[in-house]
Design a protein around this nucleic acid. Structure first.
Length: 860
DNA sequence: GCGAAGGA
DNA sequence: TCCTTCGC
């Protein structure tokens, strides 16, 4: 088609886009999903139809000529959602930048403008394509005019010409207003004939051709009731038809020359996409014009449907490694590096149920492939898939590439890594999420990782770690649930007693767990002096309560109540709730793509925050036991790993010396800071030095240090200064780390793990200061995380190589726990110490403490 | 500092 | 959602 005019119904398409896409906001908190969807659709139309002219028509706010005819026209429409409304102005900005004209006119709707456009186009013999979800526009279809109808969401569209319309709706374009006049339209509040729906209306039009003919010959209509309706409501039907009839003579100058489409769009539009974080759109523009340039064109994927288990089995046998695989409730898809995707529809799918295969059967058909570790697999969130397949009796092996983990290495600060978003960001669109797209994503990510030198970290640390984490999760941690339950009951009794005493002192019952109510009781009813306030009331945290100790007997009881409550609810009831009935074990989930620093986290339950600091809390570790009576737990933890890493990375002579001599680091720090011999360091001095070392490790501010030690902020700042004088190498390293980070926009660990730091260029001082602390701290904590990950891989591999009856079951940041046969206790202890200490050579030795015992309490 | 969790 | 508390 030589030249085509495309006119888009802006309001309609924005609505479709808005409801089709999740409400996403960009980093400035601006909602952009509808604008994005609109543009995505626009891009697709341009790609598919290559129009010469393009315009967007909008409804004008305020009444239209239709309201003069019928007051209630479009009454009762839902208000535009809060998240959508501001996007219309944004869309206009985008369209302006693309130099695409927008038309609207007081008193008219987008339909009328489209109708006028299409009349003009027909007069000029220019083919015209109208894009809208509004069925009214179907009446505009003609020789030169077609309607692109958004069926569902924005991905499915249908291009309708006259024949297509007759096939779809059973009416000709001319009859569309008649149809609506008869049946009405609830969404526009057009009445039509009462009791006449689509079926009756179509029947009548089939018989009489037009609405007028129907109204003039009511007696020829079958059915007494219908005849009466037609006689009584004839005028209403005429008016309804009139309302539904599009005005093709809008008094508006429609300038085709102004609609001449620029493609690719001008640079200012590309900048606009960039600023709105719609970079993926850029990748869909013609090659020569893109900014970055090297995005692969999104080629068509050839899909092949597999409908038998035999075909599925043949398929995996024929695919070249590595093989990408996705499994959703709807479908199993497979692909290798060729551009073909094999799809198996699954039973749960509502569509094609007859032809669909059973998941279990499909998985079993390729069990050999799934369990073959010699067949590398590309997956998204592989660990999740592993557990899913395990419930079907299949052990997933050969996990070679996880796109979620790759995305995490490329940007560790994202909130999550959903596949559709990754595809979108990679410029691959978000609609198709099968194995072929997964394969393409891998290739985009691999290029990115190569550029950022993350390949080695990915291949030698993160991917091998997946198998280790899987094994740990599968092994689980045995719990003495009987004893745990008994203790829970004891705690409950004690809590009830405490509550009673607290109520007596408060002269009345209240909810002690409610900080609001507790604050009111303490600071209003009992008139105790209140300290800090939070946003919503008095602060009642432990620090405040400790300050009130001795002022009222209720205080100590509240403190004890708080502690017991925490222990009972989180650690007793919380653990009891997640013990696997089959094996009396807790199987935590390790998250590999969550923390900004590179640590792993543990959920459902969190086994990385089991109490150890207080005596009562530590007692709970007695319920975490070896998996059988003749077995033991071997617990190995790195001593001061972060400070050792700091010594290595900063090269500070004093710090290195301290560790090489195996000295107590806090005592040495105190001795250096106050210029006294180590044996003259008092408990207070050591404890202050410890607080500063703690602050260095966790990147706290002078403000935070002051809070933790109870000294003033100024004094804390002086302490920090003094620390830096003591360790000038550390000071120099920290300064350089911040300067480098400001320059590069990110920091890295020893193994090259990256953390982006946009905060460093924030206008706000606090944000910037925060960024600086992160720049100093993240490489330290992140490197420590790298090291223990290496250690996990090394320990696991050594245990497996020696085929020992011993398994890693837990990691707590600087600590690894192995469940082992009792006779292996010393062997395993030695193995763990060796592997952990030797995993990486630093300028200072890595020291590991190892303990063993039947319970976790005894193994510390 | 980070992350997980419970309770209101 | 906020507050609090547990670990590293």
């Amino acid at each position: 088609m030589a030249e085509t005019l495309v006119v888009i119904d802006g309001y309609s398409l924005m609505h479709r886009a808005f409801y089709a896409l999740p409400i996403l906001s960009n980093k400035n908190g601006i909602y952009t999903n509808a604008v994005y969807g609109f543009c995505s659709m626009l891009f697709k139309i341009v790609a598919d139809y290559a129009p010469s002219y393009l315009a967007v028509a909008f409804d004008h706010k305020g009444p239209t000529f239709r309201h003069n005819t019928f007051e209630a026209y479009k009454a009762g429409r839902k208000a535009t959602p809060e998240e959508l409304r501001p996007q219309f102005d944004l869309l206009r900005e985008v369209l302006e930048a693309m130099e695409i004209p927008c038309y609207e006119l007081a008193g008219y709707e987008a339909d009328d403008i489209m109708g006028t456009f299409s009349r003009l186009a027909e007069e000029k013999m220019v083919p015209c394509l109208l894009v809208t979800g509004d069925r009214d526009a179907w009446q505009l279809i003609g020789n030169m005019t077609r309607v692109l109808f958004t069926r569902k969401g924005i991905s499915q569209v249908e291009c309708l010409d006259t024949a297509g319309l007759v096939g779809l709706a059973g009416v000709t374009p001319d009859q569309v207003p008649d149809l609506k006049g008869l049946m009405g339209d609830a969404s526009d509040n057009i009445p039509g004939l009462p009791g006449v729906g689509e079926k009756t209306a179509l029947k009548l039009l089939g018989q009489f051709g037009t609405l007028e003919n129907v109204l003039e010959n009511p007696d020829q209509v079958s059915g007494k009731k219908l005849q009466a309706t037609i006689k009584e409501f004839g005028d209403q039907a005429r008016m309804s038809k009139q309302l539904a009839t599009i005005d093709r003579e809008v008094p508006l100058h429609l300038d085709f020359a102004a609609c001449l489409l620029q493609w690719p769009p001008p640079q200012k539009a590309l900048d606009k996409f960039e600023s709105l974080e719609m970079r993926s759109l850029l990748g869909r523009l013609p090659q020569a014009q893109t900014n970055g340039g090297d995005k692969a064109p999104v080629a068509e994927i050839q899909r092949q449907r597999l409908t038998t288990l035999e075909a599925l089995a043949d398929c995996v046998a024929s695919l070249k490694d590595p093989v990408a695989l996705t499994l959703t409730p709807d479908a199993l898809t497979l692909a290798d590096s060729t551009e073909r995707e094999y799809t198996v529809a699954l039973k749960q799918s509502l569509l094609d149920e007859a032809e669909a295969l059973d998941v279990q059967a499909a998985v079993q058909a390729i069990q050999g492939f799934l369990e073959d570790d010699k067949r590398p697999k590309v997956l998204h969130e592989a660990k999740k898939l592993y557990h899913l397949l395990l419930t079907m009796g299949v052990t997933l092996r050969g996990i070679a590439y996880d796109t979620a983990i790759s995305a995490y290495l490329l940007n560790a600060t994202a909130a999550s890594y959903p596949l559709n978003q990754l595809l979108e960001e990679a410029g691959l669109g978000s609609e198709q999420q099968g194995a072929a797209m997964l394969m393409r994503l891998k290739s985009v990510q691999s290029d990115e990782m190569a550029k950022l030198q993350l390949q080695k970290l990915f291949d030698t640390v993160e991917m091998p770690l997946v198998d280790v984490l899987i094994e740990m999760e599968t092994q689980g941690f045995k719990i003495d649930s009987e004893a745990l339950r008994t203790t829970g009951e004891r705690f409950a009794d004690r809590l009830a007693l405490l509550a009673d005493e607290i109520y007596t002192h408060a002269q009345g019952k209240f909810n002690i767990n409610s900080t609001k109510q507790l604050g009111e009781v303490l600071f209003e009813k009992l008139s105790l002096p209140h300290g800090r306030k939070t946003k919503t009331g008095y602060s009642t945290d432990n620090e405040v309560l400790e300050g009130l100790r001795g002022m009222h007997p209720i205080i100590e009881q509240v403190i004890e109540y708080r502690q017991l409550m925490k222990l009972k609810s989180t650690y007793i009831d919380g653990m009891l709730a997640v013990i696997d009935r089959r094996d009396q074990k807790i199987h935590t989930s390790f998250q590999q793509t969550v923390t900004a620093t590179g640590r792993i986290s543990s959920t459902e339950p969190n086994l990385q925050n089991i109490p150890v600091r207080t005596d009562m809390g530590r007692e709970l570790r007695r319920f975490f036991v070896a998996s059988a009576p003749e077995r033991v737990l071997v617990d190995a933890d790195y001593s001061q790993i972060e400070l050792r890493v700091l010594a290595h990375m900063s090269g500070d002579a004093t710090l290195i010396d301290a560790f090489q001599k195996g000295q107590d680091i806090h005592t040495r720090t105190a001795a250096e800071m106050w210029g006294v011999p180590m044996d003259a360091v008092t408990g207070q001095m050591r404890s202050n030095a410890k607080a500063i070392n703690f602050g260095i490790v966790y990147g706290i501010s002078d403000f935070g240090l002051a809070r933790n030690t109870g000294i003033s902020r100024t004094q804390a700042a002086q302490f920090i200064e003094k620390y830096f004088e003591t360790y000038p190498g550390v000071k120099a390293y920290m300064d350089e780390a911040v300067a480098n980070a400001k320059d590069a926009g990110y920091v890295t660990t020893l193994l090259g793990r990256r953390r982006p730091l946009p905060e460093l260029h924030a206008k706000n001082y606090n944000q910037r200061a925060f960024g600086e602390r992160v720049a100093m701290n993240a490489p330290i904590q992140g490197t420590a995380a790298d090291i223990i990950k290496l250690a996990m891989i090394a320990v696991n591999s050594a245990l497996r190589k020696a085929d020992m009856d011993a398994h890693l079951i837990l990691q707590v940041h600087d600590e690894l726990i192995v469940d082992a046969a009792a006779q292996l206790q010393d062997t395993v202890a030695a193995l763990m110490r060796r592997e952990m200490e030797q995993v990486l050579a630093l300028k200072v030795p890595l020291a590991v403490d190892v303990h063993a015992g039947y319970t976790w309490y005894d193994a510390k």
